[in-house]
Design a protein around this nucleic acid. Structure first.
Length: 292
DNA sequence: TAGCCGATCCCCT
DNA sequence: GGGGATCGGCTAA
């Protein structure tokens, strides 16, 4: 975790370095787990502690003290495709150092299947220091830096080198803190205010909004104190799920076409809508992911 | 609203 | 040394 005590005021920094460098430094500092130090807890309605699930309790609920609603390691111990679908509707919770809880319902995921998947970082059985989390026990986070600027957050699933990328959340709680965290890492200090829909509608946006960075790599989502998963409300039954091609992997041949991205149909919080895939779903075509 | 394109640097080959 | 599981500003329609 970061050490919040050693920050120089930004106005001092701006005198010492060019705008671009300052922007980078600012971004990196705020990407580092701030433990909420720069988020005023007074501006954020404190979230109520997780409530007891009562009759909803299942084998998936961990018995960890203080978080009776959190999903335990059993939940993550399933293959990447069913896990990617099971994530939809569940609530990701991030607790900052000052106790502020940021919450978002997962609305979009992607499955990466492991060594045979040419779009996965573990393709061909590649095991490197960076992707070690992909090979660790189900529920382990794999957080990596992309394009030198952004982080992406994966959760390892059953199967060596298989994982699920979290792509979009519907923000439920701590929106102003999320906005501030997103604001501080965007270009230009005078950027316009972000709409709610822009807070978590992308894999790196949600990492910014939840202050998830490399320090979360290889943490266990089933046991970590600062980030966990809770079962979402099941009031309206199973959401309609769209299976579409994954995003940003155009170079991987046939694997780029496989419908391994899943999102809640009609959700305005999704990062990329695939109208063709939705038409296929409406027409009742059997989704190809059932082959996996 | 969609499409284009530059930013930026770690990681892998 | 090259590429990338992204993002956001800008422009055209």
């Amino acid at each position: 975790m970061g050490s919040p005590g050693s920050r120089a005021p930004l106005d001092q920094l701006s005198r010492r370095m060019g705008q671009k460098k300052q922007r980078l430094l600012t971004a990196k500092r705020h990407q580092a787990p701030p433990d909420g130090a720069q988020i005023s807890s007074s501006m954020e309605p404190r979230m109520a502690p997780p409530t007891t699930p009562g009759p909803q309790r299942s084998i998936y609920f961990s018995s960890l003290k203080g978080h009776p609603a959190r999903l335990g390691s059993e939940f993550f111990d399933q293959p990447a495709v069913p896990l990617a679908r099971a994530f939809l509707g569940q609530v990701l919770v991030r607790r900052l150092g000052d106790g502020t809880e940021l919450r978002g319902r997962i609305v979009e995921t992607e499955a990466y299947l492991g060594p045979e998947d040419q779009a996965a970082h573990s393709r061909g059985g590649r095991r490197t220091p960076r992707n070690r989390g992909m090979f660790m026990r189900p529920g382990t986070l794999y957080v990596y830096l992309i394009y030198g600027m952004y982080f992406c957050m994966n959760v390892s699933s059953r199967g060596d080198g298989a994982c699920v990328l979290l792509r979009a959340l519907e923000p439920l709680g701590g929106l102003e803190a999320m906005r501030q965290l997103r604001h501080t890492v965007r270009k230009g200090a005078a950027s316009r205010a972000l709409k709610d829909r822009e807070l978590c509608s992308g894999p790196s946006k949600l990492c910014q909004a939840l202050a998830i960075d490399k320090s979360f790599d290889q943490r266990d989502l089933a046991t970590d104190e600062a980030v966990w998963l809770e079962r979402g409300p099941s009031g309206s039954g199973e959401p309609a799920v769209v299976a579409a091609a994954r995003v940003g992997i155009g170079h991987t041949g046939e694997w780029a076409q496989k419908p391994l991205r899943f999102y809640i149909q009609g959700s305005p919080w999704v990062s990329v809508v695939d109208r063709a895939a939705e038409r296929d779903a409406q027409a009742g075509h059997r989704p190809a992911y059932e082959d996996f």
